[in-house]
Amino acid sequence: MTLSENHSKRRPLFLHGDMFSRHIAFLFLALILMALAACAAPAPPVDETPKAGVRDELVLATTTSTYDSGLLDYILPDFEQKTGVKVNVISVGTGQALALGRAGDADVLLVHARPLEDEFVAEGYAPARYDVMYNDFVIVGPETDPAGVRGMKTAADALKQIAESESTFVSRGDESGTHFKEKSLWEQAGVAPKGEWYVSAGQGMGAVLNMANEQQAYTLSDRSTFLAMKEKGLELAILVEGDEALFNPYGVLPVKPTKERNTNFGAANAFVNWITGEDAQKLIAEFGIEKYGQPLFFPNAK
């Protein structure tokens, strides 16, 4: 008889059977809750009618580029001071920003993916889309430029060369506005990017630039985020710029309220009027000059 057999006859000294059943009970509870959430009848509308007036908080869903570049921190205080409305910024990809709008979780959107924006309006989620500004994309890569694209005139040609030389290219891969732009450029280049060299990161611009920096890879970035990150020691350079295909227009869309979507339409419209107005447009134009010696966004509201 071995020692362990001998002792297995004793009352277990330390038994956590309880802990296991609790673990399982918890998991069951979670499953049941999910199932319930899936089956429950639609919740009654909280508010019968959307409030017309301006409430004092506004949720702005925007792309990472406007936030990461510091633009919003620069211009928003003017809006908050003038209207007394506090702006809560949710900085996400354009895809999620639009989804937030559709669900009524955001009151106003500042995004850059024109076809998706038009679709949003066509579906009735916003009364209209307004021009705000544009910035441009740049193809960045290692100083050594192994694919030899530096100074090329069109982005499509550059991408084609990157693909042919199988130089590592990091893609946002997150259905963001930048990702859409990238996909349209690949289309123009007549290349279906695929293979070891094409890294689909599924992350924001900042994370992708860091990744490109670590792997000394190429990527497509908006100029503003790139310059802001370059300040912090990115070892990448702008290799291709100025191609009209690289322009990146931003639109603002107030989310139309319904019974289900009790959005802050009053404040959203105030925001639209403000950002397309003279003062904000001037702030946009001057942002970045002091720090980078060049503006990052070009106002174009009509």
């Binding site: 996400v92 895809g95 999620q96 639009l98 989804a99 937030l100 559709r102 997150d174 259905e175 599924g202």
Partner: peptide, 11 residues
């Protein structure tokens, strides 16, 4: 991370 990505995409 895939869950985070799909949520960010709105999918």
């Amino acid at each position: 991370t895939a869950i985070v990505l799909e949520t960010r995409k709105g999918d």
